[in-house]
Amino acid sequence: MNGKDSSEPMFIERLGAPLGDLVRTLREIFVLLGRTVRTVASERADRREVVRQLFDIGVESLLFIGVTLGVLGVISLYQGCTQLERVLPDFSRAGATYLATLVREFGPVICGLMVATRTGSAIAAQVGSMVVTEQVDALRMCNTDPVRYLVVPRFLAGGPMLLMLTIIGVCISFLGGMLTARIGWEVPYSTYVNLTMVHSHDVVMGVLKSLSFGYAIPIIAAHAGLSAHGGSEGVGAATTRSVVNCSFAVIVLDFVISSSVYLVVN
């Protein structure tokens, strides 16, 4: 930095470039969030479009969520019971423990990741291909705000739908685990279904997580889509960016919510 070593600022520049990108992307995402919230507060959203997005996000992901969460339940109980066998062969709390972690952690997070993958990439692909084919500019020319027309319905649909998908996913996953425990370790259903370990703060945490993921994913995906440029290559890049940013946001939000709830409760 003192002029003698000319490679030093370049090195720092290279080190700082991803950080600068991160800060810029975050700022743009928050600006988009602000504009979306302002639009939601000031104008009525197009109800038909919201319903269509509810359908798109919710119903279309249902099968996907069902398969992945069901498999998660089978795997978790399998792993958990084989481990329990080594330490203490007492499976009476397996179901209760699994349900608690599912409600608090795995249900919202895995659903969030799956929706980030499916819906996040779909939104970015739709919005991105509208951007590169100049349909968004056409919207602007017709005096239609692209945020109001494209982002707001997806934003409004995301939160409630992810919450519902999480509830369904938790049920399916719990059922998958129940079958595994019954077939593999002969745990009776009545022992497995045990709600005593789920506290109210677990439920609050799960709902909080899935709602925040649900509202974050459409905004981040729409941001990636709106910043697409170039032809088909640009759409591909935007979709990739969307999946990565959305999954990453889910993991970071999960960490933030988990640790703050832990600190508040204890």
Binding site: S121, A125, G128, V132, T133, S232, G236, T239, T240
Partner: peptide, 17 residues
């Protein structure tokens, strides 16, 4: 372009499954 976007979408879903 929209074909590429759709393909990426399908690809990540299938990869996750």
């Amino acid at each position: 372009a929209s074909g590429v976007g759709r393909a990426v979408n399908q690809s990540v879903v299938a990869s996750a499954i």
